[in-house]
Design a binder for these strands. Structure first.
Length: 341
DNA sequence: AATGTAGCCAACCGCTTCACC
DNA sequence: CGGTGAAGCGGTTGGCTACAT
């Protein structure tokens, strides 16, 4: 037997709210508050709406100091940074952006920001890893194999974003930016971009870096066998990402970002390339280390610096032989570059 | 002008978490 | 301590609009 509905579905109105309904709800809550009982609220007010619907309308639209649209560069950066760190925990992200609702941020991410950062092809590829293969046999085989893949789109996107950022921080080491995979002739803006990487100002702006990268660089395609995907490692990585989310919720606020970014960076650089259990054991002590590194430095600044310094000590993952340049960026490259293949 | 397509966003659905009894 | 119901949350849908064909 299923759970009882929260309201009488036959007697509640659905769809867009009328101005009169908005006015009634707003006036009542401003005068009496919600009374901590959304279910009873519509009856008290005299509107035929579900309590959940009232709550949503209030939180996303009627509540004072709500901002709609017009996201600033700073907000873009923060959303991007938090998404890479904790994934689609929109309520947590919204808590860092005064006046923004989780629904608004979610819509903004799904309709604009994600495309802005990843580009259309990459997004479709991240959802359908085999989309650009032209061989039907190969395509079917890969689709079947990839269907078994357990990494969530969210986690894959986060890895992809992280890698883009990372590759821009250390172009000499990253597969993604390895000259062997570049087009014969660089776009003038690519050259400019590379120059800008030397600039500390640009290095502090992940949004700008990723934007430039997405706009002017067409990465190569990998054609590899998905059967080599090591699902367990993905699961562990995803779990770790989730732990980061918990950490943010527990300690709260932007001040935690530096440690969070450090952990993610650590995951990508070390954990995925082997030694998972060893790294797992050291998890807590590493966190202590990052705590000490916190200080007057702004979180994002520290993150950028940390990327730079870590890049110097990380090993190059040269997988040139497994790539074939056909255009289009695939999850396979992520796997390879993270040492999963 | 008619039709199709894509983008956007408000709202809904259903699962999970939390608080109370 | 387990059951129950409300709140919270994230994914998804539906409808409107703008633009392309």
């Amino acid at each position: 037997m299923g759970r009882a509905p929260c309201c009488d579905k036959a007697n509640v109105k659905k769809g867009p709210w009328a101005p009169e309904e908005d006015a009634k709800l707003k006036a009542y809550i401003e005068k009496y508050g919600t009374g901590n009982n959304w279910i009873a609220l519509p009856h008290k007010i005299g509107i035929k709406r579900c309590g959940k619907s009232c709550r949503l309308r209030w939180l996303n639209y009627l509540r004072p100091n709500i901002k709609h649209g017009g996201f600033s560069e700073e907000e873009d950066n923060l959303i991007c940074t938090l998404y890479i760190s904790i994934g689609s925990r929109w309520s947590v992200i919204a808590a860092q952006l005064p006046g923004r609702t989780d629904n608004d941020i979610k819509n903004y991410w799904n309709t604009k920001l994600k495309k802005k950062l990843l580009g259309r092809r990459k997004i479709s590829n991240s959802h359908h890893l085999t989309a650009t293969t032209h061989d039907p046999k190969e395509s079917n085989g890969l689709e079947n194999l990839c269907a078994e893949q357990t990494l969530s789109n969210s986690a894959l996107e986060r890895l992809q974003l992280h890698m883009q950022l990372q590759s821009l921080q250390k172009p000499n080491l990253s597969l993604y930016n390895h000259p062997a995979f570049w087009p014969n002739k660089l776009h003038p803006m690519q050259e400019k971009m590379i120059q800008s990487l030397q600039s500390s100002t640009d290095r502090l702006n992940p949004m700008l870096l990723m934007q430039q990268h997405v706009d002017f660089y067409e990465p190569p395609t990998a054609r590899q066998d998905c059967s080599e995907v090591k699902n367990s490692k993905f699961d562990e990585l995803e779990d770790a990402c989730n732990r980061v989310g918990m950490e943010l919720q527990t300690n709260g606020g932007i001040s935690s970002l530096s440690r969070i970014q450090a952990e993610l960076d650590d995951l990508v650089n070390n954990k995925v390339s082997g030694n998972f259990s060893q790294q797992e054991d050291d998890f807590e002590s590493q966190f202590d280390c990052f705590k000490e590194m916190d200080g007057p430095k702004d979180g994002l600044v520290w993150w950028a610096d940390n990327f730079q310094s870590k890049s110097a000590s990380s090993n190059s993952r040269d997988s040139t032989s497994v790539f074939q340049s056909e255009g289009g960026y695939h999850g396979h490259e992520l796997l390879a570059s993270y040492g999963l293949q």
